[in-house]
Design a binder for these strands. Sequence first.
DNA 1: CCGAGATCCCGCCAAG
DNA 2: AACTTGGCGGGATCTC
Length: 329
Amino acid sequence: LLVPPVVGFDVAAPGSLLSNALDDHGNRLYDVKFCTARGEPALTTLGAELVPHGDARLLATADTVIIPGTHNPDVRRLGSLDEPTRHAMTQIRADARLISICTGVFVLAAAGLLAEAAATTHWSALDDLQRLHPSVIAKRALYTEHGRISTSAGLGAAIDLCLHIIRQDHGAQTANRVARFAAVQGWRSGDQPQFAETPLPEEGVQSTAIARDWAVTHLGEPITVAVLAAISRQSVRTFSRRFREETGSTPHVWLSQQRVRLAQRILETTDLSVDEVAHRSGFSSPTSMRVRFRAIVGTSPGAYRQAFSKSDSPHGRNPSPHDGVRSMG
DNA sequence: CCGAGATCCCGCCAAG
DNA sequence: AACTTGGCGGGATCTC
């Protein structure tokens, strides 16, 4: 059971993500409900149930509470809680998981839940947080975890955090499925340089991450699972196991995806022949690339390039029709 | 498209 | 007792 806002709004996206999280049989994994303590309108575009404001008793039943960003001056300027918020916070179970989005962290801090705890918020509010609550360890991160309390930097980071939580609760495979359904990045890996500069939460070091980093810079070469395992200083068996735990995929499937992505980029930016693209992407043969390419992108390399070059925006979206759900075992 | 050989994947299980 | 590791078998998948 997940009950979001103590105050305010803006939990729509993470709430939707969680309420759309399904298990293998299509059952919802989280029962998402919205409520407010202050009578502010809650966004409920998501098929999630709107609980009339004032019904803070609902909070007492929640396993997880998401606290959205707030502009409440008591909370943001004075570092204290107004009465409705304070009362709402007292309703929350002592063992409930708490998640803040953006400036929602100020509510947690004002409630005294973050003493000596790592926490984050939107970068523009980090200084405020540290000044109002000196005992908080304010960190510039996408999200942080400290025991049962997690904080996120903003709406986008909140989605990452929710995926992280789904992953912890139900495994990487489920998290990936939810991410795919929501059309967001499933998890952060070393092949996404835009994330490299962003301080990531220091969750346990992912043991296959180094091998993955190495792989994405050597896609043009033949890569076997045995080599990746050796890079990770693990046995093949353990490496495969970790890999699935950490990425939700198998090494071989993951490699194919990376190579197709690389092929897409080469097709978009060069006039190299398809055979040459296949070679540079590390496919063992052009035939092999065509098969993999079609399986993932939904169209042939040639058609993809043609469609891409015709599309108006040079950095536009994938112009090929993604035919949604592929039956997948 | 076929078929042989290589490689991958994962349940199983003994060992630590 | 509970957990992790890593070798093995062999069906699935890929490659040539």
